[in-house]
Design a protein around this nucleic acid. Structure first.
Lengths: 114, 114
DNA sequence: CGGAATCCTAGCGGATACTG
DNA sequence: CAGTATCCGCTAGGATTCCG
């Protein structure tokens, strides 16, 4: 664990805690799931939705937009009819792969025990 | 990425997705932060609170109880006056260390760029 | 097909006060 | 010191409908 620097006595600057930032970005109900599904490669909106039937279209759209605004995924729109939109991890998103991998291992372990 | 088995056509059983489970447990606003601080070793309630001044006592208590119920941390109470309670990662919590480590690395990377 | 626009609600998390 | 006990506002996320 890396101890971050202190900006003032007895007060941790939130911006200095890497976990706080990570939690803010990937802490939502769906963020990790979405990134996980995208980890195998590009997916269209509908494909993503089919792999996560419990999420609603509206929520999925919002979450994808959020992840895009945080620069974790790419959104490519094809000007066709019917429309096609493809989502994929970009550089910052790809850097999350080690996290997803470890989390996946942990998840399996947890299930095995409980 | 490990592809989980399907229980029925076109329907993913939530229980089979390791990330979904992980997200449910460590997806709260404070879970990862708490586990992160505990990763260096046992901490008393007050110490933990001092390292996260932004969280309120009530919320911290709730989160600690939640993490305890999910079997990630130990809670040891000393029958003293004034009372002393020590929190530490247990086996399942320790297994999250690789995740926290990778997440920490990612968090620093993210800050560096943005 | 992949949204946008609305509306709505559960429950997370905060503030405050009190206590063994 | 490390909690409970209330009370409560906010907003993430869901349901539904409409659209290019």
């Amino acid at each position: 664990m890396i101890v971050w620097r202190w900006k003032s006595i007895n007060r941790i600057d939130l911006e200095d805690c890497p976990i706080a930032i990570a939690q803010k970005i990937i802490g939502g109900k769906w963020a990790l799931r979405i990134l996980y599904h995208l980890s195998t490669g590009m997916l269209r909106f509908g494909e993503l939705n089919r792999q996560m039937p419990e999420i609603t279209q509206a929520t999925l759209t919002k979450e994808l937009r959020r992840l895009e605004s945080f620069q974790l995924i790419n959104r490519k729109v094809y000007p066709e009819v019917p429309p096609r939109v493809e989502y994929s991890l970009n550089e910052m998103g790809l850097k999350l792969l080690p996290v997803l991998k470890e989390l996946e291992i942990w998840g399996y372990e947890y299930k095995k025990i409980h």
